[in-house]
Design a protein around this nucleic acid. Structure first.
Lengths: 297, 297
DNA sequence: TATGGGTTATAATTTAAATTAATAAGTATC
DNA sequence: GATACTTATTAATTTAAATTATAACCCATA
């Protein structure tokens, strides 16, 4: 079996004609015809049913099997190339905005002192996208947020911390007079939320589902600062990780009664079996310090 | 990148010298030297440090990265070949002995009627080994036993049933006078067990651990019939799936007080994304009937 | 420090394989 | 049945890979 032939085959699967395929690879048509024949001869099975006026009519069941494995093979080849290309070159690191705001600053000084800051190639997007990027080999290390501990056989994870969700409100708000609140009592309250950031949204929905109402969301923002300011000005209340709240924030905090198991979990994640270069080892060591620092902050 | 070069490289990783490697592939030594050079040139990195008197000194870190991915690539290629080779040819099926004894007979008639019996290539061994065989592509479908529901991203599983563990004893035994028993009360009792079969052993150990004693095991057997006979003759008591006990067995049954979550779970398993041929689809349909039949029996 | 026994590297040659170019041969549509 | 679109076949060419023979290297030890 030849990797090039598998590339041709996967591409044929998508384009549907030998002619187009040949053009896209900038080779002549007989080249690809013979390549597919090579595969068919080696496997002793027909992979695609041809039609000399339309191109391919159908990929056979055997063709489907091969396609699936070929995709895996080519993905793995690609991963090998990019990992090697980036080895000892820089730290391709994924950091979700909220974690970047809340926790990363706690170790940033140490990382800078170790001379690693200049080597960081930052990918700042949500945890879901970062997971995709990790699997696709676009990044090698990520801090991932998750509402439950990560259980994923394709990742190596190192759990750092678990942050509690609380309800914040202005000090003028009726909530300010109490320390705990049942989510049920918030049916009438206007909410401000962190938009697009999977976890806060997701957990707010879970709490709502349990008491069977849709929260009245009057404003969405990407920024924790904005969120806190809006709440401080009594525009609405919000669900937020407790760690995000500072003593100087002028906010009232209410713990949730009978809280859900969902927390704001933070973990370091790499692809399973990913081999770390020396820079990355040092970097991960520095990140691991977060385990002790987070709940002191 | 060439698959053949990756094969050479993986083999070099193991043998340690170019000369040996060349011999094992029955090619001349410069062939493999050039193959590794091709890889190194393409990746722009040294993969192994050579020593012209001893063979290879060391595989570099980059070499380690490549080796890991190369293994995956070659494994996937192998899987593609064997899956295609066996497509529409026969049903490579793994059946653990206990499940083969207890449950498979319930659907055997239907499978025979559908003319599938002759197509079965049976792999009869323990569930752990069957999982290995499944991943290695030696079999394609298995009935797997597990003490907890299977959660494995590399498998597609279809849960069939969950059998309760009970304590069986002779009708002369003091246990015969009661219906339930606390495991703690069995400290002094001699046990007969099913040997080598992971689940029964494993669950017996879990119960023992909880009450902090090692059960006195006086006999181990592979056969459920033997086990039941020994118990009936009051040689000892045993932990057994309730489904294995027939009304005609002349045994006393005791349910466990505060049972553990571990049960005798049975699931159909295939590799994730495995494409079933028509025989296999029919076969799996027939197996799925077990879901309804098991607890009627 | 010269030599022998092990290794890997190199260059020229041979062999094998993939690609091309030109053309044939299907299949559908009008 | 001519046209326009495919894929298939063939022989010639080009490219790549394996071999052969030999060189270069490393190290132990005489």
């Amino acid at each position: 079996m030849k990797l090039r032939d598998l590339q041709y085959f996967c591409s044929l699967y998508k384009t549907g004609t030998f002619t187009e395929l040949a053009k896209s690879f900038k080779v002549e048509q007989p080249t690809v015809t013979l390549a597919i024949k090579r595969l068919e001869n080696e496997l002793g099975e027909t992979l695609v049913l041809r039609n000399r006026s339309k191109g391919i009519i159908e990929v056979t069941q055997v063709g489907e099997i091969l396609y699936h494995h070929a995709q895996n093979i080519l993905h793995e080849e690609n991963l090998a190339s990019t990992e090697i290309k980036h080895f000892n070159k820089g730290i391709r690191f994924g950091l979700p905005p909220i974690i970047g705001n809340l926790y990363f600053p706690l170790v940033a000084k140490k990382i800078a002192e170790d001379g690693l800051m200049a080597n960081l190639e930052l990918d700042e997007t949500g945890s879901n996208q970062l997971y995709q990027d990790l699997m696709a080999g676009k990044i090698d290390i990520a801090l991932l947020g998750s509402s439950l501990p990560i259980r994923n056989k394709k990742l190596t994870t190192n759990f750092l911390s678990s942050g509690e969700f609380v309800i914040i409100s202005s000090k003028k708000h009726w909530l300010a007079k109490q320390n705990t609140v049942s989510f049920e009592d918030l049916k009438q309250e206007p909410f401000v939320t962190l938009n697009g950031k999977f976890i806060h949204d997701h957990v707010l929905n879970l709490y709502s589902q349990r008491v069977n109402f849709s929260p009245k969301i009057i404003f969405e923002t990407q920024s924790i600062e904005t969120l806190k300011n809006l709440v401080a000005q009594d525009v609405g209340i919000a669900l937020l990780v407790k760690d995000a709240i500072l003593p100087t924030d002028n906010l009232a905090v209410n713990y949730l009664q009978s809280p859900l198991p969902e927390k704001f979990n933070v973990s370091i994640a790499t692809r399973k079996d990913y081999i770390r270069d020396n820079l990355e080892k040092k970097f991960i060591e520095d990140l691991e310090v977060l385990k002790n620092k987070i709940h002191q902050a």
